[in-house]
Design a protein around this nucleic acid. Sequence first.
DNA 1: TAAGTTAGGTGACTTTGTCACGGTACTGCT
DNA 2: AGCAGTACCGTGACAAAGTCACCTAACTTA
Lengths: 226, 226
Amino acid sequence: MSSNLFEYLPRIVSLFPSLADISEQDWKHSGIQVIETEPNHIIEEGQFLEYAILILEGTVRMYKISGGGREITLYRIHGGECCPLMTSSILGESEYEASACVETTGLVLAVPVDIFRDWTDRYRKFRQFIFKSFAKRIVVMSNLLDSINFKSIRGRISEHLVQMTKQAGNSNTLHITHDILAIELGTAREVISRTLKGLENEATIKLSRGKITIMNQIALESYIEA
Amino acid sequence: MSSNLFEYLPRIVSLFPSLADISEQDWKHSGIQVIETEPNHIIEEGQFLEYAILILEGTVRMYKISGGGREITLYRIHGGECCPLMTSSILGESEYEASACVETTGLVLAVPVDIFRDWTDRYRKFRQFIFKSFAKRIVVMSNLLDSINFKSIRGRISEHLVQMTKQAGNSNTLHITHDILAIELGTAREVISRTLKGLENEATIKLSRGKITIMNQIALESYIEA
DNA sequence: TAAGTTAGGTGACTTTGTCACGGTACTGCT
DNA sequence: AGCAGTACCGTGACAAAGTCACCTAACTTA
């Protein structure tokens, strides 16, 4: 819990330019806090929220979990973003329909829901930022839905691996377990293992414990479906 | 195309109470139109939109379509609603990621995007209405995703049938083809046929051409998964 | 170095999706 | 009435994906 919100203000504003207009008065509400997050802290599905969360540092993974224990990652939110599924439950006044898990230590700005609502009313830039966040996630979710329903796992895995290499600065060695991949893509670990084995047999990738090396990126990309 | 928008105003406002505040001046923009929709008119994926659409009468089905021709219904919008996936592309300034199909003759209010943006800025109630629309659809989409990824088709079909009976005033005779059901649920017609056949063999339902009769609603409901 | 934990492999099976047909009921036309 | 064309449904054979049970290999830690 932050001792002094105002110390963080410059950082907050540089991450969220849309908050630049907020008056000093408005920052002085007692409920607003900067909170340090611990990894693996989980916010469960179906709760009513007291705060809107804006991420300053670190990442949060939004996911769904099934009765049978299978899991799927919906999307991640990083520094400078807010979580529309949570916001949705605030502005739509309903429970929210997913779980969130903090992945790294980090910092978040917590704004009490009534103040949040007030700000979206009174501050144009902030409001537009929230609108865009919604829009972005709706698109992401709709594409995810498309992938799940229409694409082959081979294609989806390939796509995920290729994306990962980009994030890893085009290194062709990825440090990830089959288990995690399964959770990312919403399938079973065995399915991932089998499919990866298939790719290894074609010399497209090379497997070792907790590591995947891309041997033939072109081939991998060719599996990605429209 | 409407000869006189102002004739429609009382109806518009009673359907969209959030539009009650809009000033007469603001209604006088030349671009705003009431348009009659023809069934099966389709708006394809990936277009930039010139108008925000508010439905006055009739329904519009939003769906995704795959390369292989399979299709899935994301949700429907009815009188008194707006389409967040379209709105999303307006406020998020991106292409929109689904197709829309008019299902019945009806009426829509078309508001040019710049006017729409202006209204969301200046009119609080309207803005909150749009926010809630977003929130609602995000929840719907996230639940759909959950169903597709985690639930059995038997469960999904059962759920859909039970829902349909409610909409049909608890009549236990549904007029629907396997083909349509497949499109609703995003699967193949054969899968639907097989599953329904299974339910018929257990005397849970009775099949005839273009018609499904529910014989044992309790059994049907028991298949619906959490 | 032994024990425990995490990661990965595999075979057998079920469910779901795909492909290729074939049959049956309706519709409209002559 | 007869016929062609279309929409709807059934089905078998197969492929792809998910489930279950169990195993082995590799790291970790005491």
